[in-house]
Design a protein around this nucleic acid. Sequence first.
DNA 1: GCCAACGTTGGC
DNA 2: GCCAACGTTGGC
Length: 150
Amino acid sequence: MKSEPDVYSIDDLKKEGQTLWDGVRNYQARNFLRQMKVGDLCFFYHSNLTPPAIVGLMKVIQSNVVDPTQFDSNSPYYDSKSKLDAPRWQTVIVDFVKVFPNMIPLTTLKQLFNPEELLLIRKGNRLSVMPIEEKIAQKILSLVDISGEI
DNA sequence: GCCAACGTTGGC
DNA sequence: GCCAACGTTGGC
C-alpha cells in the first residue's frame, strides 16, 4: 500500500496506532482493497520521495469499511456521485506493526525481482494498492532484520 | 521540473 | 462505443 510521506507516513501510523486507509479512488486499487481480509499483512510503501521504498509493515484489523470521505463535501476525496445506500469506495482499517530498521528501496526490489513476480515494479504501474505473492513477500521480509519476530 | 503511462471525462 | 483532451501518479 502506497502513501506519500508528506500526506501520510509510516511515522504518522506509528503515532496513531491504526488508521482508516481513505482516499483510494481507483477502481482496480479498490477491488484489491475489497479482497483484503482481517489479519492480512501489508507493506507500507513511501512513494514520491528519494528513494521510494518499502518502509514498514501493517496489519488489516477491519475489512470492507465504507470510506467516509466519499460523502464529505469538504474532503479532497469527496465523490458527489457516490450514494449513501450504495457507496462506491470501500477500504480497510490497518494496525501499525513495524517500522523496518532498514528500508527496502525500489532500486533493490528492481534488482531482486522481475516485473512478473512483483506488480510494484511493472512498467507504468500506478496502483496505490496491490497484491503481493506470499513467496515474494517472504523474500522481501528476509531483507529486514525482523523475520523472526513476526 | 519533466515526462511516460495511465485513468477519466465528455462530445459526438 | 470511440477517442481526443485532460488530469494524475510517481520515478527520475
